[in-house]
Nucleic acid binder design. Structure first.
Lengths: 232, 232
DNA sequence: ACAAAAGTGTTAGGCCTACACCCATGA
DNA sequence: TCATGGGTGTAGGCCTAACACTTTTGT
């Protein structure tokens, strides 16, 4: 490797460090993942997770949030790192260690990022084979999402602020790939006490008009501090 | 920085990457953590988590296992990465990203590693203030251990292969910092079906002689595949 | 008219929790 | 002999899971 003034030199070899992002959305029926199509080699033309190199003045989480903003325009979504991937040959060019994150975004809030031309939402069942080891990363992200939604109310990050019970149930069923009994789901959710009715049901409401709820974060933190455990 | 033949040069600055290890043990009463005393600056004389720089021909997990072997002599303990720490100034010398792991070891198996002179086991309530951000790393490791032991039978990694129900209960109580009713703990554990009696109770067994059990990993994987969920 | 969506309540079974006594051993 | 540790079973309460009908609207 040529050495010149633009180079940064170290006594021992170092890997590059990147943050990759599995960005989840929900369209009311399916869980979606945002992928970008690579414009350069390696894996040119293949779909991949959004991500990029960490700067020296940011943490990996900040890097992930920066990438998220660049890809979707969102600034305050729920982003969390979940695993580092460091296989020696995971990038054919050079040694790259990536810290993988997942982000939960409301589809309605996504305007389409700067690179929107090459970005697309995919349903979980139509995901193509991905560049690098991104298949593996995605698989692990999905598993983490399943585990986490059982114990923390992160699902609300994927829904509009106001939602119906059926929408919420559809979300849980889509993520966990199971079916719940509608009445039991209602009862369980309401008993938890972390939902508040968004608007009181209008007097002229017909049987057909669903109640609207919103997630009550204060109630949740209050309950959690009392040593309450969310479960599904 | 001086450039010479011993240097490795890159077009963009890169952090160093390390693996740190929170090594848990159990002495029958307390959860213990293995710490090493730093012999060099920075933080010379302070206690720290064992860990070290990743080589270019190993993954971070392999790096963590190498460190574990160097520190304790153990080669097949349960090691799992749980979080990356990348604060810009977490190491005063230079930018270092660390991938933190925890390891569960049987105290009896630990011969004392190469660096044993400067290594010591600490009970959770006697841990001194640590070098770098290792306090924070340790705190998160303890939380992860608590979460994980509720749903996966990792506690057995900390016990001898053969153990009494009371020892098992002590372990759970030490990790979770709670007290269980002895009979309920017995019933729950036995109902799970993941324990087998190590030796049939000898005929001459007195009331005072406890039954010995061992963890039945086959039974566990079998149950898990049937969609069984461990819980505490 | 028919299909689809939403509101609503009960019951049975399983699980969890709390709880007491006896025996053997070692101090 | 006294304190400690270990083995053992039950009853009540709570939670869970299964389950049906009615109303309304859109097609």
């Amino acid at each position: 490797m040529e050495e010149n003034k633009e180079m940064y030199s170290y006594r021992y070899p170092r890997p590059a460090v990147t943050a990759d992002c599995v960005i989840f959305g929900f369209d009311g029926v399916d869980i979606k993942v945002l992928l970008i199509q690579r414009g350069i080699e390696p894996f040119k033309g293949k779909w991949a997770l959004p991500g990029g190199f960490m700067n020296m003045n940011e943490t990996v989480e900040e890097c992930a949030k920066r990438e998220l903003k660049e890809e979707t325009g969102l600034t305050n979504a729920s982003v969390e790192q979940f695993h580092s991937f460091s296989d020696v040959n995971r990038d054919p060019r050079e040694r790259v260690v990536t810290v993988a994150h997942y982000a939960l975004v409301r589809l309605a809030d996504v305007k389409g990022g700067d690179d929107a031309a090459s970005a697309r939402w995919f349903s979980m069942n139509e995901i193509p084979s991905l560049a690098f080891d991104h298949d593996r990363i995605l698989r692990m992200a999905v598993n983490r999402l399943k585990e986490r939604i059982c114990f923390e109310p992160i699902g609300f990050e994927l829904l509009p602020q106001v939602f119906t019970m059926t929408e919420l149930q559809n979300l849980y069923e889509a993520i966990l790939e199971v079916k719940f009994d509608r009445r039991n789901f209602y009862n369980k959710m309401l008993k938890l006490g972390i939902l508040t009715e968004a608007e009181p049901r209008p007097a002229n409401a017909s049987r057909r008009t669903p109640s609207k709820y919103r997630f009550n974060a204060e109630k949740y933190t209050e309950l959690k501090q009392k040593g309450f455990r969310l479960e599904f």
